[in-house]
Design a protein around this nucleic acid. Structure first.
Lengths: 175, 175
DNA sequence: TCCTTAAGCGGACTATAGTCCGGTTATGCC
DNA sequence: GGCATAACCGGACTATAGTCCGCTTAAGGA
């Protein structure tokens, strides 16, 4: 519907009332369509998420199938961080609410399944649980904070990967 | 003041109005004293936090000074997880809000400094940044979710420690 | 003791997410 | 084409965090 109208203006400081008004629609309709503010943000990042998921499922290595699981994991972290900094505000909105909303989105399920599979493939115990731990490291709020502290994306990527003991993917090793 | 009155009832489903009323005080007073809902929760976990900090600073090894940094890190993760499950609801409240409130509490600063120091002592590069990554792994929301999924504390601890490549502290190794 | 001034209090007020119900429009049957 | 029914819509309403200002009470001076 009017998602694009809305996406163009940025969600940050917009209230749901304003959004509804801008979309020429009642608030009830907005909520029927998206369920919540987080749901709306989710819908707005959806395209970028799918694009990344596509690259994982059918794209070229190292993100897609091909190299060993360690390389793919490194590539995923890399790609996810790029996705995060491109979609900053919306992902933040997506992950905000109280009752662990983050964990119940479809996207979270996808990332989790992907990481868990790679960890198992690597021979790790308890891949499902460890995938949650890896994802905690990729929380939008953390990265918003780190960016605000002036840390460079490359340095962040590298810190996460070494902390996790992931193989250092050296592509795009600037600095 | 009336913190105890309040602590006894649990914060979870209480509104600030109810809290003020229960404390026989106006809402303005409540906000002057604590600044926000998160601030109130912070004040309520304060004692438990200090107790843990005390054990780190002056208590016996492996949490306190003594063994190598790797052991101390493992012990910290262990102790922090225990603290988290004892103070579940309050810490969650503390970490909730929008503008990265979690990162601005005094307690976060302490944990961060402690971890960063241990990492540096271990000879790690970029200890400050990596300490943030480690702390992301200890977010209250994640652990609330994991508990709700039925993961056992020991298993969680072990997953975090192996993910981080921390030395496996074997004390309290049930299962 | 009374008056002046400062500090602190409390509850009415605002902002905003999310709900709900009465009305309106569309659909299908006669 | 007209009516019964269902689907959908919109905005008034509710819940709740956080703000603000007028009033009360305490402190200090004469």
């Amino acid at each position: 519907m009017a998602r694009r109208l809305v996406a163009e203006r940025g969600i940050g400081a917009l209230t749901m009332d304003e959004l509804a008004q801008a979309a020429r629609v009642g608030k009830g309709t907005l909520y029927r369509a998206f369920g919540s503010r987080a749901g709306l943000a989710e819908a707005l990042v959806d395209e970028a998420e799918r694009e990344l998921q596509e690259r994982i499922l059918t794209g070229p290595p190292p993100l897609g199938y091909g190299p060993g699981p360690a390389e793919r994991l490194g590539a995923f972290v890399d790609a996810y961080l790029a996705f995060l900094s491109d979609n900053d505000e919306l992902v933040l909105e997506t992950e905000r609410p109280g009752e662990g909303a983050r964990f119940h989105t479809g996207a979270y399920g996808f990332w989790h399944a992907h990481i868990a599979a790679l960890l198992r493939e690597e021979g790790t115990d308890d891949g499902g649980l460890r995938a949650h731990v890896v994802l905690a490291t990729l929380a939008a709020e953390l990265h918003a904070h780190l960016r605000s502290q002036g840390y460079e994306p490359d340095r962040i990527r590298s810190a996460i990967q070494t902390t996790m003991g992931l193989s250092q993917v050296t592509r795009s090793r600037r600095r």
